[in-house]
Design a protein around this nucleic acid. Structure first.
Lengths: 340, 340
DNA sequence: CTTCACGCCCAAAGCGGTTTGGATTTTCCG
DNA sequence: CGGAAAATCCAAACCGCTTTGGGCGTGAAG
């Protein structure tokens, strides 16, 4: 059932049927109702391809999921982000086109996507400190919104980010106020922008109190449970182990918890922990008193915001979205005064 | 840069250029080389929409991600599955179209997708014991592969599944062999097919030894960390607590571990645990001796297999893929003889 | 009674590819 | 060397929709 069939069926021209369905004013309400009824009854849905070809819009948003060959993983943060963005897309009649791509093919993929016209815009995930993709996308003229920022890129672009620096500065201050002086940071991969900003916040808080800590109190890596476990063990087994940890995600924090258990230490009493909590749907850190003290910011909400911003940009409104979300600092069971 | 421009540029007809690029034999190798070179140089890529319109193929596969309104979560298993499938798609030049959809809109989405022709086929996620979507897709004539099965559906369809029943029967046997008699099962949502099959395996193993256990030794729910924690606490606090747990995923098992810690119990000594390990990239249960004893089957590999099967089906090969993957049973640190 | 403005609808020209059915050369062979 | 076969290439139709540029009544204004 295509437009021609339908219009023939109705004794109308394709033009009129198309206009009726798309809400153009040149068609009487009576006809419009008839057309809608028939379309519904006959199960007519316009071909997305033909529509796209005629209008020049793909009605789809691209998300590119790079898989680095070293650490072949898909960040769990990604699924919740997608869930948030996806809701917005389906509400607006947009599709979400996902490309899983090897790191090294990533720029090629952007170029191909832009030229093939499969999407009207893209969301940029996991920006590095100095991310070449921003310039690339601007060159390609493909609308985009960055989830995060790229500190070393001077250009102007739309982004939605959490105030990572402030969050980790506050978290560090909290631990310092509790009397902790040996505070370790289990950070994300160091070339990621969010990790760099968190490190900066941590360092700023320490510097403000004139503290200096061993270099390897800061670790960076892919945020797996195993990573948290291994690095925590390493640090706990030092001659001068930390009394507190900042952890970049709840997942390595679970590994940290395992490490504490291995060493017979109790979280919140022997060792304090503050995590960054993305509110992953499978790892709720909630309840009257959450298990972990945390800087909290919903990645799903960020997904929604990115999607909305991008759709607005595509619709031609150019409001330059640069939104800094503040994470809330919530106290849970994992923090307590430093043991002396 | 479209085909007309390119052909004009080359002094050839669009026909010839199209054929040259698509590998048709009616064009000389010399011309083909010239065309390819020019296309490369001028950065020509055919419009996906126009191509789709002309060929009738969308070169895209749909994945529908239903979000139930009660438990608004995105299964982490999903991201790894997608990663596996996505690799295959990009290798074959296919896009992956993801629809995030409210539960109640799911059938409507399938119908719309089928009629709009945005995809050439879909992967069915999370089949229920009796899943109406299978009949729906067959009625729509949209090629599909199910990740899992739907036990109560008598029809013939393509699927890739893990032998969940056998896996959980073996895991239960392992625990029984170790002397455990009070074995709890922290299962997934009971209407999910995989959960029903795991339950059946568990029950079969118990029945084979003439064991009967309290009804609430089996729990079902969304497989979050919190779920594992809460149910484990409830069971451990019974007058006759289990000495062993079967857990449907590593994520609730982390909650279980937290519960053990809360109660001062040691996993592998006081309480034995066997999980099902999907090999989630952020929760590796590996190493010389893995932390958890597990029935192991890579969901990422399953994603690859589903994608390959679907692409084959779309290509017209109709090999009726019904693949049962056997999970391997690996011994880790979480199991030991039952304390007496 | 014109004339003009609407209101309603339509024919036809794209959008950017693929594919059918020739047309024109080349090549091959007796 | 002539004719058939093979090799190349092309014009035009088509995929299913949108959109431009009218056409045709009808009622109001002049």
């Amino acid at each position: 059932m295509n437009l021609k069939d339908l219009s023939h069926h109705l004794g109308l021209s394709p033009t009129t049927v198309s206009r009726a369905l798309n809400g153009y004013p040149e068609v009487s309400e009576r006809t419009r109702a008839r057309v809608h009824e028939a379309a519904e009854r006959l199960g007519y849905a316009p071909s997305a391809r033909a529509m796209g070809l005629a209008t020049g819009r793909a009605m789809a948003i691209g998300h590119i999921l790079p898989l680095s060959s070293e650490h072949e993983q898909v960040n769990p943060v990604f699924s919740d982000f997608i869930a948030g963005a996806g809701e917005v897309y389906s509400g607006a009649g947009y599709d979400l086109s996902l490309s899983v791509v090897r790191d090294e093919d990533e720029t090629a993929t952007y170029e191909r996507i832009a030229r093939r016209g499969t999407v009207d815009g893209v969301v940029l995930h996991g920006p590095r400190v100095d991310d070449p993709r921003i310039a690339l996308l601007q060159r390609l003229g493909l609308p985009f919104v960055v989830h995060g920022r790229s500190s070393a890129v001077a250009r102007d672009y739309d982004w939605i980010d959490v105030n990572n620096r402030r969050a980790f500065q506050r978290a560090t201050d909290l631990l310092l106020d509790l009397g902790h002086r040996r505070i370790a940071l289990l950070n994300g991969l160091s070339h990621m922008d969010f990790a760099a900003r968190r490190l900066a916040g941590y360092q700023a808080a320490l510097a403000a109190r004139g503290l200096e800590l061993p270099e390897d109190y800061v670790t960076s890596g892919e945020m797996t449970e195993t990573y948290g476990h291994a690095e925590a063990l390493r640090l706990l087994d030092r001659p001068d182990p930390p009394t507190a940890f900042l952890v970049a995600s709840i997942i390595p924090a679970l590994g940290l918890r395992r490490a504490l258990e291995d060493r017979g230490l109790k979280m919140g009493r022997d060792i304090s922990v503050v995590i960054h909590d993305d509110e992953l749907s499978y790892f709720r850190n909630a309840g009257e008193v959450p298990a972990f003290s945390a800087t909290r910011s919903s990645v799903r909400a960020a997904g929604r915001l990115c999607a909305e911003a991008l759709l607005a940009a595509i619709a031609g409104e150019r409001p330059k979205v640069q939104t800094l979300l503040e994470a809330e600092l919530v106290l849970g069971l994992s923090t307590g005064p430093a043991p002396q």
